[in-house]
Amino acid sequence: MPVTVETPTEKWAGKVREITLGATAAEGGTRTSTVTVGGEGTMPFLHFEGETPHRPVVAIEIYDIAPQDWSPILMDYWGDVVNDVVAWAKKAVELGADAIALTLRGAHPEVNDRSPEDSARVVKDVLAAVGVPLIVYGPGAPDKDNEVLVAVAEATAGERLALGLCEQNNYRTIAAACMGSGHIAVARAPIDVNIQKQLNILISDMGLPLDRILMDPTTGALGYGLEYTYSVMERLRLAALQGDAMTQQPMICTAGHEAWRAKESKVGEGVPEAWGDWKERGIAWETVTATSLIEAGADILVMRHPEAVAIVKKTIDQLVAK
């Protein structure tokens, strides 16, 4: 007796909001290419159920100074370009970056304490050197983040950068800067669906339109809390599809930063033999972290190793193929 199976399709009331990073000359910026993410009307890549109008994208992360604490594997790969942020950005684009994620580490009071004005100039230099959209992170010290990002926002008005991080206890200044200069805010919550939603509400209550807020659910690397991020992302996507307007922001994940902080990718000696080859392991660690997050609904992956980027982009090709 032949059995007929009906496709078990879920009917969703909502979808992820579309957000475009970067603005071309016609749109008031200087980008030669922009990136649009979001718009998904289904759990990730279930094409029988709903649309995935835009593919997830990969941003390659660079610093404005040579990183002090990166894994030797990464430093070996990039070589000298890490000393020249402009060259580094160009190289990253050559290697397939859909966007550049620039961390202004040099502005940190305990690193180079670079001034907000100088930091803004670095951003301008990178904008001049590459045509892809930029995601700009502050140095990671709340007060300085605010100063630097306000300067960057003003100096780059109209470029539609993504600026981060807006966090629960420090969101107003950066969100206001985005509001005034036409940028996008990256809202990071500590692996918590509710706090993420609350942060989105708070930022939107300030008047920043929802199509200018990205969610960063905080990334746990493979073996270091990946499952929490994974589930939080699934829950956020489900809520978005169920029509909760305050969870419909596209998601950005810092897969590279977290994966390369793991002992597995950072340390080569004195580790168990069962861990295998260090370099390959590091790349695999970043790859598995990133692909798992894509399966959970990531829209933008911020990554570090171009070989991992290549595999992840290929995986994305496969997943968006109908």
């Binding site: 918590d192 669906v193 509710n194 706090i195 939603k197 609350q198 509400i201 909760d244």
Partner: peptide, 14 residues
């Protein structure tokens, strides 16, 4: 814990 975090908002996250 989940419900608690949800309720730590005015009036509520939802």
């Amino acid at each position: 814990m989940d419900e608690y975090t949800r309720a730590l908002f005015l009036p509520h996250t939802d």
